[in-house]
């Protein structure tokens, strides 16, 4: 069984990486989870997972200088594939190899979470959404974030990728999140998985280079992430053809 989720948002600053790692850790109670930093131009998963010293990263794999196994690390109950932060690494990386990376990882895990770039303006930034089975859209309850989230959804569904759900993040008490999420759901193809409150704990965790669920597992935000993971129904993919599936992931012919 494998299902690939792209954790996506149209805009930066929504807490996408924090959300990817937190969802991954919450799902790892029930599943074998692999988290990949697919934001190859602005990587930061490594800083969230205590891997800032990682010697081999996705950049090396995408540059065909290392096998994917060399860039996988076991941290916090997850398999983590961090990406490097150097410009040279980005320049030498061939984004198309991401297909092969996903296909290789798919053979040996239940869930792959792709931390995706917060943009839709290039082939590289859209590829994770194309490769994924479904997307989790990370939103803030603001007009630009929702409007960009809608665009992400339309790109995804145009490319035959479904919507697993919405995750409202950094929600402040003053924001009437129930009404906003109810109205937002009218326009999205997936339900609200959770509303995660703005959290000082999340900032602390990021500064400490630890995932939120390891740093403050009992805080309100961590609890919300666990609820999100709980409400995410993972679909049984066809394990046998997983590799084929991702190697041939292309835009539907109807386009």
């Amino acid at each position: 069984m494998v299902e690939v989720f792209a954790v996506a948002s149209g805009k930066g600053g929504t807490g996408k990486t924090t959300s990817t790692v937190a969802l991954g850790m919450a799902l790892s109670d029930r599943y074998d989870v692999t988290v990949v930093d697919a934001d190859t131009g602005m990587a930061n998963l490594l800083f969230h997972a205590g891997l800032s010293d990682a010697e081999t990263t996705l950049h090396d794999v995408l540059a065909d200088e290392a096998p994917v196994e060399a860039a996988t690390y076991d941290r916090f109950g997850l398999t983590v594939v961090p990406c490097g932060t150097s410009l040279d690494g980005f320049r030498d990386a061939d984004p198309d190899r991401l297909r092969d990376v996903v296909a290789a990882l798919a053979e040996d895990t239940d869930i792959i979470l792709l931390d995706s770039p917060p943009a839709l303006d290039s082939r590289t930034s859209v590829l994770p959404i194309v490769l994924a089975d479904r997307i989790v859209v990370v939103l803030q309850p603001t007009i630009p974030a929702i409007s960009d989230g809608l665009k992400v959804q339309e790109y995804a569904t145009t490319y035959d990728t479904d919507v697993a759900g919405l995750l409202f993040n950094k929600v402040r008490e003053s924001e009437s999140i129930e009404q906003v999420s109810e109205k937002t759901e009218r326009y999205f193809d997936g339900p609200t998985l959770a509303a995660v409150p703005e959290s000082e704990r999340a900032r602390e965790a990021r500064r400490a280079g630890r995932p939120l669920l390891a740093h403050a597992p009992e805080c309100e935000a961590a609890t919300a992430y666990r609820a999100a993971a709980e409400s995410l129904t993972v679909r049984d993919g066809a394990a046998a053809d997983a590799a084929d599936r991702f190697q041939s992931a292309v835009i539907p012919e109807s386009l």
Binding site: L120, P141, T142, Y155, T157, R186, Y187
Partner: peptide, 25 residues
Amino acid sequence: SAVEAFLDDAEKIEAIKQQARSEAR
């Protein structure tokens, strides 16, 4: 709130979605 007013404008949201779909294609 401004966000709710935005979400109440179904026509505009449909236009944003349509534009994104045609861009994606």
